[in-house]
Design a binder for these strands. Sequence first.
DNA 1: ATCTGTTGAATAGCATGCTATGCAATGATA
DNA 2: TATCATTGCATAGCATGCTATTCAACAGAT
Lengths: 152, 152
Amino acid sequence: MLFNRYLLPMAFQKERSPGFLANQMARLFAKGLQQRIRPLGLAPAQFMTLLALWDEDGQTQSELVRRLDVEQATMANTLTRMERDGLIERRTRLDDGRSQSIHMTPKAIALRDPATQAARAQNETALADFTEQERQVFVELMRRAIAAMHRD
Amino acid sequence: MLFNRYLLPMAFQKERSPGFLANQMARLFAKGLQQRIRPLGLAPAQFMTLLALWDEDGQTQSELVRRLDVEQATMANTLTRMERDGLIERRTRLDDGRSQSIHMTPKAIALRDPATQAARAQNETALADFTEQERQVFVELMRRAIAAMHRD
DNA sequence: ATCTGTTGAATAGCATGCTATGCAATGATA
DNA sequence: TATCATTGCATAGCATGCTATTCAACAGAT
């Protein structure tokens, strides 16, 4: 029997903490993706935003916020940088003076294939030694953790 | 047979991209942890740093960098904020004028229990509906992905 | 003892994210 | 129609992280 079982809480081990590992893993994913898409003139958050726009161009800022699950202020800043970099254009809507449609430039449209290939390569690097089943399980567990935290 | 199998790459689905999910998950972990430890006057990166210091006080900045796997500049900035907030003290080493020992204040030492409890609670929230086996698998898969990206 | 290379930290500059505010355009209602 | 609440964005301010650069202290070698 462990002598301190009822006296001390188990030490917090960061190597086994899902939150700690998630943070470390996400930083490594971002770092790897950044290196791969930098030659394209893209940053990770810009790529993420383009994922939504490649799916459907001309969305509203609030629609992008809902799809990508970031705060509105974060999206506003990312869009400002993308506009600066010639990736998108903001067009004020005719039917509602508050909102704008976000439209990709030809430059952004052309980046679709190389950028998604880069992201796939990064995912492949991270999961190189995973079996197909492990990949599916991994994605499913992440989705469940995300859903649980959303419910909270 | 899918008509476009040999013509178009499969659409990139962010909902199934490990990198995308890792980013989203890490943000939710951080957000949840932040809410829980804010009453303690702690921020997530400060908590992470204290995890290393609770384990062993008086470490060097470069030792903390190695343990927590962040860049040296990131650690320097986090330590500056922790010093500002009265959590740590930097003491120049007698044996090496370049390095400093990072020492916790009584305030930081006292936060150990409530802060680790908060982190445990956040982990529990995220993995609420996981079985014990799923938790172990999840942690193991994250560790393997991290290791693979480190090798890259 | 001096020169050179290395190492530990700080700083600058920037991207991402967040919370909190402010503001203008809409919408709903008395 | 005047008022009030809601909605869509922008901005301020800050924490985290990263890359790149600089600087001082140290270590080794001649």
